[in-house]
Simulated assay, not measured.
Amino acid sequence: MIRLLRLLFWILIGRPLVLIVLGLNVRNLKNLPLQGPAIVVANHNSHLDTFVLMTLFPLSRLHRLRPVAAADYFLKNRVLAWFTLNIVNMIPLDRTKVGKRGEDPLENCGKALAAGEILLVYPEGTRGATDSLAKFKGGVARLKEQFPEMPVVPVYMQGLSRALPKGEIALVPVVVDVFIGEPVAWAGNRQAFTQALQDSVTALAAAAPHPTWK
């Protein structure tokens, strides 16, 4: 039943919102991984980011897509929690476990990848400013170490900060540009890989029609 409800939501509401109300201009869709395990990483400026990323995939892949987001925000009330866990199929990240001995906040992410799923991750950790890219956190590098053959694909999205900025509730129709890069190769260690990942998103932004940072 939940899987059917999820499919109906994306057919009737989610995808029309992105494709009709907003509109997409996508470059290099062929780079998008359609099989898991895989991770798609992107800049994060709006709650609509996940809607856009999920719309890029065929509906047949919908049940394999697992956005990763903060549990303390998206599980703060029962209605929002039900929607994000069941319709968005989110993996909640418990940020209180970060840095604690014996705790692994990425445990459920690892299980999802082992099951052949595709994670959607925002390495900045939160919605950032429109004119800068915050320093990437190292969680994706830890997962890449566990699954060395797994593709990690960078994505840059432009326009969503105007369509639904942080702190706003009114949606402004804006055509969203999406740039999909090639998988980022392992760079020898976590720190180097995280930097390479951030550099790849920055490079995609530089190729955008109106780059928001250099």
Rank of each mutant, 00 (worst) to 15 (best):
Leu4Thr: 14
Leu4Phe: 11
Leu4Val: 15
Arg6Glu: 14
Trp10Arg: 03
Ile11Glu: 06
Leu12Asp: 01
Gly14Val: 12
Gly14Lys: 05
Arg15Asn: 12
Leu17Glu: 07
Val21Glu: 02
Leu22Asn: 04
Gly23Phe: 08
Asn25Phe: 02
Arg27Ile: 02
Lys30Gln: 15
Asn31Gly: 09
Asn31Trp: 05
Asn31Thr: 06
Gln35Asn: 14
Gly36His: 07
Ile39His: 01
Val40Cys: 06
His44Glu: 12
Asn45Gly: 00
His47Lys: 12
Phe51Pro: 06
Val52Ala: 12
Leu53Arg: 02
Met54Pro: 00
Met54Arg: 11
Thr55Glu: 09
Thr55Pro: 01
Phe57Trp: 15
Pro58Ala: 11
Leu59Ala: 07
Leu59Val: 07
Leu62Asp: 10
Leu62Ser: 06
His63Ser: 14
His63Ala: 15
Arg64Ile: 01
Arg64Ser: 13
Leu65Asp: 05
Pro67Thr: 04
Ala70Ser: 13
Ala71Cys: 03
Tyr73Ser: 02
Lys76Ala: 14
Arg78Gly: 09
Arg78Ile: 11
Val79His: 08
Leu80Asn: 04
Phe83Asp: 01
Leu85Gly: 07
Asn86Cys: 10
Leu93Lys: 01
Asp94Ile: 00
Asp94Pro: 00
Thr96His: 06
Lys97Val: 00
Lys97Gly: 00
Lys97Ser: 02
Arg101Lys: 15
Asp104Tyr: 00
Pro105Ile: 12
Pro105Gly: 09
Pro105Leu: 08
Leu106Gln: 05
Glu107Thr: 05
Cys109Ser: 15
Gly110Trp: 01
Ala114His: 04
Ala114Ile: 04
Ala115Pro: 13
Ala115Glu: 11
Ile118Thr: 08
Ile118Tyr: 02
Ile118Gly: 05
Leu119Lys: 09
Leu119Val: 08
Val121Pro: 11
Tyr122Met: 11
Glu124Lys: 02
Glu124Trp: 06
Gly125Ser: 07
Thr126Pro: 00
Thr126Tyr: 09
Thr126Glu: 12
Arg127Asp: 11
Ala129Asp: 12
Thr130Leu: 12
Ser132Val: 05
Leu133Arg: 10
Lys135Gln: 14
Phe136Tyr: 15
Lys137His: 13
Gly138Arg: 15
Gly138Asp: 04
Gly138Val: 04
Val140Asp: 06
Ala141Trp: 01
Ala141Pro: 04
Arg142Leu: 12
Arg142Ile: 01
Leu143Phe: 10
Lys144Thr: 02
Pro151Thr: 04
Val153Asp: 01
Val153Arg: 11
Val155Ile: 14
Tyr156Leu: 03
Tyr156Gly: 02
Met157Ala: 08
Gly159Ser: 10
Ser161Lys: 04
Ala163Lys: 10
Leu164Glu: 03
Pro165Asp: 08
Gly167Pro: 13
Glu168Arg: 15
Val172Leu: 05
Pro173Met: 11
Val174Ser: 03
Val175Ser: 09
Asp177Ser: 13
Asp177Gly: 06
Val178Phe: 10
Phe179Gly: 01
Phe179Gln: 11
Pro183Gly: 09
Trp186Gln: 10
Asn189Ile: 02
Arg190Lys: 14
Ala192Asn: 11
Phe193Asp: 03
Phe193His: 10
Phe193Arg: 00
Gln195His: 14
Gln195Gly: 02
Gln195Leu: 12
Ala196His: 05
Leu197Cys: 03
Val201Gln: 12
Thr202Ile: 08
Leu204Gly: 07
Ala205Val: 06
Ala207Leu: 12
Pro209Ala: 13
Pro211Val: 12
Pro211Met: 13
Thr212Val: 12
Trp213Cys: 07
